[in-house]
Nucleic acid binder design. Structure first.
Length: 435
DNA sequence: TCTGGGGTCCTAGGACCC
DNA sequence: TCTGGGGTCCTAGGACCC
């Protein structure tokens, strides 16, 4: 298969990838200048592992994905600042940044909470670096978040450029790999493991074939690479040569699934509590469904004990019985609690559970059973009142009693910063020291 | 002894992303 | 003692169909 058959085209486009430097940490710093120069990292849910760290923390040996309990000594010794994750804050900062990007490019693809692809084809080649530098200065001034920009004729090359801009200060935050010679030089010194789409397993296979740099992968036979890394790997080879196989996705595609899954702050050992936890996840899931205008068609519930323990292990899952597609909180809640009760077996310490939807439909377009009552106007009214109250007074203000009140199992977040930008009660006050 | 061919659909598992 | 959550895509293999 050649590039054209693989659905790829020789690219005269220009992609830019802009992302926030250690994004979560930078968000924390915007509203708390006292930590502007201190080593800092942000933890995953339940205050588990490091998911974002500043250069200062990195220099002290804090690694990505490291569990907190293994680095408490380092934290104490160097006075490292630790924060729980605060997604309300990060999500809002992300929204602000994308609003700014939209003033620099007609086509913006929001790729993740801190990364967006921009089409810069409308900017003359020799002006792109200046243009991108102007953009990152604007973002810094208006949001306080430092960014880096990578530019290239394909998304994969824009990703490479972005990483290069991060690594080498000489680029001044913007690296443009449009020029062929400069690009090839960069790829020759670029680790194969660092390429977008090449994970640990693929990297090991490629190294086994003697391919250890992006340059060598670019020069490899696409068919041979396909044999090892499937069509995904073949596309990467084309993209590295400057042939674009991954177009901008301006409209987010229809979601395939949706889930709410969480570890407990302490293990659950009784069925009443487990039903409560799973019900609570179902409530969140129903809210999420409604906010996307979707209904659940099929889904399941799972629970399991610690994967880090050799004994007393139990991993189970079962289909929920949804007799028809729904976005109704009470219905989903009951189905999830039922399934949890069916799955339950005592004598184990469960550390995590979740509700997973595997098939969704747009509300109003779902397949319906002719015999069932189709009138959902009553439950829809209940749901919209629920959403309105929780929207005004905060999530969880009104919820079914079955989802529990005390929630001792609920996720730990002992070092969370205030919701500076999304909660009236937590607005920073000028003239008073920030919390 | 001998036992088609070609298609679709579904699922589980692996790999990857942030 | 303590180890995240939520997604996507691809492939192989089995079930099933005519």
């Amino acid at each position: 298969m050649d590039a054209a058959q693989a659905g790829c085209e020789v690219s005269d486009e220009c992609f830019a990838l802009i992302d926030g430097n250690c994004f979560y940490c930078s968000c924390e710093r915007v509203f708390d200048p006292s930590i502007a120069r201190r080593p800092l990292f942000v933890l995953s849910n339940n205050d588990g592992c490091v998911i974002s760290r500043t250069d200062e923390a990195k220099a002290l040996g804090i690694r990505m994905g490291e569990p907190l309990f293994k680095i408490r000594d380092l934290v104490r010794r160097y006075g490292i600042v630790v924060r729980s994750s605060n997604y309300a804050l990060y999500g809002d900062m992300s929204r602000r940044m994308n609003e700014i990007y939209a003033t620099f490019s007609p086509d913006v693809e929001v790729y993740s909470i801190d990364e967006s692809f921009l089409d810069l084809s409308h900017v003359a080649e020799e002006e792109r670096v200046t243009y991108a530098k102007n953009m990152r200065e604007t973002v810094l001034k208006w949001t306080g978040i430092p960014t880096c920009v990578g530019i290239g004729p394909t998304k994969t090359l824009a990703k490479v450029a972005n990483k290069a801009a991060k690594k080498q200060a000489a680029y001044g935050g913007v690296c443009d790999l449009t020029d062929r010679i400069e690009r090839d030089l960069c790829l020759d010194g670029f680790d194969v493991d660092d390429i977008w789409g090449v994970g640990a397993a693929s990297a090991a296979k490629l190294r086994g074939m003697g391919i250890d740099t992006a340059g060598k992968l670019r020069d490899a036979d696409p068919k041979r690479v396909r044999g090892i890394l499937t069509v995904v790997g073949e596309k990467i080879v084309h993209e590295l040569t400057g042939v674009s196989c991954m177009p901008m996705e301006l409209v987010p595609p229809q979601r395939q699934g949706m889930a709410v899954t969480r570890g407990f702050s302490s293990p659950i050992t009784d069925v009443v509590t487990m039903r409560e936890a799973v019900s609570h996840y179902a409530v969140r899931l129903a809210e999420k469904l409604r906010s996307h205008g979707l209904v659940a068609v099929h889904g399941s519930v799972f629970m399991h004990t610690s994967p880090h323990k050799a004994v007393g292990r139990r991993h189970v899952a079962a289909e929920m019985r949804l007799d028809r597609a729904t976005d109704d909180t009470l219905r989903l809640c009951a189905a999830a609690a039922d399934t949890a009760a069916r799955l339950w077996k005592g004598g184990y310490a469960y550390v995590k559970a979740g509700v997973v939807l595997t098939e969704l439909a747009r509300k109003g377009e779902e397949q319906v059973d002719l015999l069932s009552c189709l009138d959902t106007s009553k439950t829809d009214r209940v749901s919209s009142v629920l959403d309105e109250i929780n929207g005004r007074f905060g999530r969880g203000m009104l919820a079914p009693a079955s989802a529990g009140i005390a929630r001792e199992w609920s996720t730990k977040a002992e070092m969370r910063s205030p919701k500076y930008t999304t909660s009236w009660h937590e607005l920073p006050v000028v003239g008073s020291p920030l919390r």
